[in-house]
Amino acid sequence: MSTPILALDAVSRRLAGRMVVHGLDLAIARGEVLGLLGVNGAGKTTTLRMMAGVLAPSAGTVRLGGEDLYEQPELARRRIGYLPETPPLHAELTAQEFLTFCARLRGLARGAVAAAIDRTLERCALGEVRHRPIGALSKGWRQRIGIAQAIVHAPELIVLDEPASGLDPVQALKLRELVRGLGRDHAVVLSTHVLPDVAACCDRVAILHQGVLRHTGPADGAAPGALRVGVGTPLTAADWAALAPVAAAEPIAPMRWRVRLRADATPADLAAALVGRGVGLTELRADDTPLEATFLAIAAGDTAAAA
């Protein structure tokens, strides 16, 4: 990854006496779209608020371009765009009036505002409602104006909390295209519950669970270094641990395991070790676990642990 625009270093956040985000290390670079996933209460919104400069971390640092965001909050003015879970719209104004204010608030020069608004309205397909009061628009339109206010000043980092909320399927499809387009020139972080959205428009995902970062990886779900292994005889975790090439193994089904190799081991080493122990090998392939399975496994793992 190139030099990160935003870097969270050991960030924790306590709210109402409870640790909501704990020891989070995360970075995002220009040209990257990061999807933040997690069940309700996982700490996604708190994390996004800290990224956007709205909520200071209890511990750790949030760095924007190498500078501490909370020591220099004015950094956020031009460089970050933020769409909260509820779009912060002034319903009594028209879309154009509101975006003009947002652009000026974010430090855009007066002469550059008109062009920026035209560009943003076109990008968000808001042209036909630009002169209508925001309060009179449907939820889908308001959501798009919320996105527009986050990008009108062309920030380096765009933070979107549930941007697809309230959009119909056609609008959601356009949103994916919009986010992908934004990801070419900016760094984008978005949280969503819609997993196909993540797979369609994110380069990387980070899965939070109970305030802890549990997984980062490519959005297509591939897990480099991990193998899916089918065996002809039942094995236990201890059997796997006894094999030299194996770093970790977890069961997927009675005779199928997800195996992570040690750094110096190859799949051939594993096959040789299994055959050497007389274990029938029925399957050996790269583990391209779909995102949904990873997500559910993390959530279900904790449910099982809690049970």
Partner: peptide, 14 residues
């Protein structure tokens, strides 16, 4: 109440 305060808080204006 209208959840619009983040617009100002995230603006970088002191």
């Amino acid at each position: 109440r209208a959840a619009t305060l983040p617009l100002l808080l995230a603006s970088g204006v002191g």
